Simulated scan of single mutants.
Amino acid sequence: MSEHPRTQMNDDFTNPVRLSLMAALQGVEEIDFKTLRETLGVSDSALSRHITGLEEKSYLKVRKGFVGKRPRTWVKLSAHGRSSLTEHIQALRAITSGL
């Protein structure tokens, strides 16, 4: 008997901002915080909280550095994050196709 798609969904990605964040990172190698914030249309504090939560669960990798004298933060999907997102999307597709 096959597993129901709902059980394959990742509860960490059910928040719309988190899912949008993960999806935005799927198409790039790495993205800076400012660009990600503008892409998602969220506040600095909201984005920071979601990044921290996803990083703690090893879905993201965060790199901090400087461009000139200005601090910068870059974010990218980890291998675990990429595979977890793929599984979540497959579960959503199965649900929406009526399987």
Rank of each mutant, 00 (worst) to 15 (best):
I89P: 00
A91R: 03
T14I: 03
S83R: 15
S48A: 12
S48Q: 09
G81Q: 08
D32T: 03
G53S: 05
T86W: 04
K61C: 10
S48E: 05
G27R: 12
A23Y: 01
Q90F: 02
S58T: 11
T35E: 11
S45Y: 15
S83Q: 15
W74H: 09
G68K: 06
R6F: 15
F66Y: 13
G68T: 14
Y59S: 12
H4E: 09
H88I: 00
G41Y: 06
N10W: 01
D44S: 12
E56L: 14
A91N: 01
F13Y: 08
Q26K: 14
D44L: 07
S97W: 00
E30Y: 08
F13C: 04
P71M: 05
S97V: 02
V42R: 15
R18G: 01
M9R: 10
S83V: 13
A24V: 01
I95E: 02
R70S: 12
W74C: 02
V67P: 00
K69H: 05
L77A: 06
L21Q: 05
Q90T: 06
G65F: 09
S58I: 11
G41F: 04
A79Q: 14
N15R: 13
L47T: 09
L85P: 08
D44Q: 15
E30I: 10
L36A: 08
L60E: 15
I89Q: 01
K61R: 15
V17W: 00
K61V: 09
R70N: 11
G65E: 06
H80Q: 10
E56P: 02
S83W: 10
R37N: 08
T35G: 09
Y59H: 15
P16S: 11
T73Y: 02
L40T: 10
V42Y: 09
S20G: 14
G53Q: 07
E87N: 10
N10K: 06
P16L: 02
S20N: 15
E87Y: 06
D12C: 00
E56H: 11
P71T: 08
S48K: 07
A23D: 06
F13L: 07
E29H: 12
K57W: 04
G41D: 07
L36H: 05
L47C: 07
T86Q: 08
R49T: 08
A94T: 07
T86P: 04
D44F: 09
G41Q: 14
T7F: 11
Y59R: 14
G27I: 05
M22S: 11
K34A: 05
A91G: 01
D44K: 13
A23R: 03
R82D: 08
I95P: 03
K69Y: 02
I51N: 12
G98N: 04
D32Y: 12
G65W: 13
F33Q: 04
